[in-house]
Design a protein around this nucleic acid. Structure first.
Length: 508
RNA sequence: GUCUCGGUAGCUCAGCUGGUUAGAGCGCAGGAUUCAUAACCCUGAGGUCGGGAGUUCAAGUCUCCCCCGAGACACCA
């Protein structure tokens, strides 16, 4: 059983922004977690490269659409490298295997008798690139957004028989545990209850797209192209493309993580297409929120943007990942604030966690000959830090599969704070001055070091580099899997404890 | 216009089926301490829980009305 999860396929109209980075980091954290839990993970990301907007952007940059896509896709790949995103599959919708797959799905859907030719008529806004509803009754035929005159269009399109799947989709969207967060499920249910209408899956006059095999002047429209990338991503080579084998390659997806704006297409169109093609459905959708910057909507027009590359060069991977995952509830909208960012990193990572490691390691080295002290087993079994650590682990293990990164992060932090408080309370630096306390101090320091080891391990999916640095300062390495390591008492008494260095520097 | 979700300390938010003096983190002020990354720890100030009316012995928590914000209402990658 594989755990297949996807990010959206990002539209390469422009270079990647913080929003896509956020989504991808969250998926990466989940994927890393699942791998550590021993799951067979397929983490899919990629880019959506077709459509008029891209064609037009390419034209205005005086390059071919393909060149534009090549250039922009590389920016995504480079960015994911920077942020150490460990995806397993990266799909480009301009790839040959994707075209092959789209053609095969089209055949299947046609065989289900779900494709027909009809005419799309209506008032069309060139700015929005869409037909506007409810215009007929108005006197002025203008786009409410662009305030421009609408064009009457009457064009031939292929349609997909969505209406046929009304009952099945109704059932699906009412299923518990399919749409997350729950608040968004209602919106989808209401939408479906109003009755599903067939939708068009092809365009004419749009050359930058996948050609429809039996209609030379048609190309596939976005929802019969981009969504199918989740399938084509699974194959390694063009020759492998054969829908019958898709389940061997990891379909169905366990989870699609998407922005809240495209939830409907994933909750309705996508399952319907899969049903029509006789393929299993994904088990879960998660529509996350959007980021604002200093309280304002991000946008090129307002100049209120933040470049993930700049952010990276200023603060590094760990800081950004921690801030996004810990301070913003996944699923809700969030606000990126510089001051808060700096406060959070310094407090959580440098002071609470980093300093805990530093102070404990220093004490231990000083009084125990640069080695992990020995633990006195009978008393350590009931040590308060041990039970706190075990609580932390179980909270964490429940939180991450729910994509509650915030709770997971907080629970780690609580363990670190608990350990800090404990140190202050027992004050080993006083105890050690009185003779006869050595064994007691050894036990206390061992317990705190164990807590730090567990903190370091739990940090791994969220902030992998920091996690590695913490463990290596304990003389440990991150295991490939957690099963035998997420338990108390792994540190070996008598083994060397390296000299501590600040594991994460303070900002400013 | 209809519907959904929010409006709780300076900031970001927790507060389950109504029940003792409304919580956390950050920020701010003071204190204590020296093992440590001027870190850690303790204490404190600060809220008429958007506004109004109602139900109830009792409402941040239920009902109604109003104000503000975000979103959905089909082809918005």
């Amino acid at each position: 059983m594989t755990f297949t999860l996807t990010t959206p396929l990002y539209y390469v109209n422009d270079k990647p922004h913080l929003g896509s980075t956020y989504t991808t980091i969250a998926c990466d954290a989940l994927a890393r977690f699942m791998r550590l839990q021993g799951e067979d993970v397929i983490f899919i990301t990629g880019v959506d490269e077709h459509g008029q907007k891209i064609q037009r952007t390419a034209e205005s940059n005086n390059v071919s659409p393909q060149e534009h896509c090549d250039q922009t896709s590389i920016k995504y790949l480079d960015l994911w490298k920077l942020y150490q995103i460990r995806y397993d599959k990266f799909i480009r919708t301009t790839s040959q295997k994707h075209t092959n797959l789209v053609h095969q799905i089209y055949e299947r859907v046609k065989q289900s008798d779900d494709i027909y030719m009809s005419r799309q008529k209506g008032w069309y806004c060139v700015g929005c690139e869409e037909y506007k509803d409810g215009i007929d009754t108005k006197d002025t035929k203008q786009c409410p957004i662009h305030k421009r005159d609408l064009e009457w269009r009457d064009e031939e399109n292929l349609f997909f028989r969505l209406s046929k799947y009304q009952t099945q989709i109704e059932e699906l969207v009412n299923t518990d545990n399919f749409i997350y967060p729950r608040a968004r499920q209602n919106e989808i249910i209401n939408f479906v209850n109003k009755g599903l209408k067939d939708f068009s899956i092809s365009r004419i006059n749009l050359t930058w797209g996948i050609p429809v095999p039996d209609h030379k002047d048609h190309t596939f429209y976005v929802w019969f192209d981009a969504l199918l990338g989740y399938l084509s991503a699974l194959y390694n080579k063009d020759e492998e493309i054969c829908i019958n084998s898709i389940e061997q390659f990891g379909w169905p997806a366990s989870l699609h993580v998407i922005g809240k704006d495209i939830l409907r297409f994933h909750a309705i169109y996508w399952p319907a297409i899969l049903l029509s093609a006789n393929l299993p459905l994904p088990s879960k959708l998660f529509g996350h929120g959007f980021l604002t910057l200093e309280g304002e909507k991000m946008g090129k027009s307002t100049g209120n943007t933040i470049d993930p590359i700049d952010l990276f060069s200023n603060y590094g991977n760990d800081a950004i990942r921690w801030y996004l995952l810990k301070d913003i509830k996944f699923g809700s909208d969030g606000d990126f604030q510089h001051k808060r960012f700096i406060d959070i990193i310094n407090n959580d990572l440098s002071n609470t966690i980093g300093n805990l490691l530093n102070r404990t390691s220093s004490m231990t080295r000083k009084w125990f000959n640069n080695k992990i002290p020995k633990e006195i087993t009978q008393t350590s079994n009931s040590h308060p830090i041990r039970s706190k650590a075990e609580d932390t682990i179980s909270t964490y293990l429940e939180a991450i599969p729910e994509l509650n990164f915030q709770l997971a992060a907080q629970s780690i932090l609580e363990l670190a704070t608990f350990s800090n408080i404990h140190l202050n309370e027992i004050a080993p630096w006083k105890l050690i001055k009185q003779p006869g306390n050595e064994e007691n101090v050894a036990l206390e320091l061992y317990s705190v070091l164990e807590a730090i080891r567990i903190v370091g391990m739990l940090l791994n999916p969220l902030v992998p580099e920091l996690s590695n640095r913490i463990l290596s300062q304990l003389g440990e390495v991150n295991p490939k899997q957690w099963s035998n390591y997420l338990v108390w008492g792994i540190l070996k008494p008598g083994s060397d404890l390296p000299e501590p260095n600040p594991v994460i520097p303070k900002i400013e």
